[in-house]
């Protein structure tokens, strides 16, 4: 039985990308091998380690436990879409400042998982962060500095959101005034 390849088109980090792949191609291999986005890593084969975590339509998922064909049409963000060297995302900046990484292999997945956590719970306690990390494994750090990093990132992101809200509110007021 000949099995045809499928064209899979996704929006990754704001850019539309597509490639023809076997139906069995795992999303993580599609991202890494077909699209060249090697920031997402593979650490296990049983969906435990979470090194491959990305967001799909805003939700943290393990890209080793999803087929590329299942992602067709989805909005994907990988670590490459978080921030740049010169303009790090608060999560990246906090991991840097708090020494939340050592070898850096699990880090992209951990950060993406934590982006997913903060979406669910923007102001998590230490315990909630530790529970939120059930789906990732870091062998280097003992997690403590990751927890500090996530706490810091949550704070920065919350403040930024507040400012944003204020800005929006302000601009709305200005807009109304103009009427």
């Amino acid at each position: 039985m000949a099995i045809e390849n499928r064209k899979v088109t996704v929006t990754v980090n704001g850019q539309e990308r597509s490639a023809e792949v076997e139906p069995r191609k795992l999303l993580v291999h599609y991202l890494r091998d077909d699209l060249g986005l090697t920031g997402t890593h593979i650490g296990c084969d049983t969906s435990q380690c979470g090194a491959c975590t990305i967001t799909v339509n805003g939700d943290a998922v393990k890209s080793c436990t999803m087929l590329a064909v299942q992602a067709d049409g989805a909005e994907i963000m990988t670590v490459e879409g978080l921030g740049t060297r010169n303009e790090l995302h608060p999560m990246q900046q906090s991991f840097w400042e708090e020494h939340g990484l050592q070898c850096g292999y699990c880090t992209p997945g951990v950060m993406m998982a934590m982006i997913g956590l903060l979406k669910e719970n923007p102001n998590p306690s230490e315990e909630e962060i530790r529970e939120g990390m059930e789906g990732v494994i870091c062998r280097c750090t003992g997690y403590q500095f990751i927890v500090s990093a996530v706490q810091k990132a949550a704070k920065i992101m919350a403040e930024a959101n507040e400012k944003n809200d204020q800005k929006v509110a302000a601009s709305q007021l200005v807009g109304e005034g103009n009427l």
């Binding site: 890494r32 090697t38 670590v79 990484l101």
Partner: peptide
């Protein structure tokens, strides 16, 4: 001090073995 190696690793620009094509 913050680590020199981190910005690279934090942005997905590390080069691990499987990243080599």
């Amino acid at each position: 001090l913050k680590r020199k190696e981190d910005p690279r690793l934090l942005t997905g620009n590390g080069c691990f073995a499987d990243d080599i094509q």
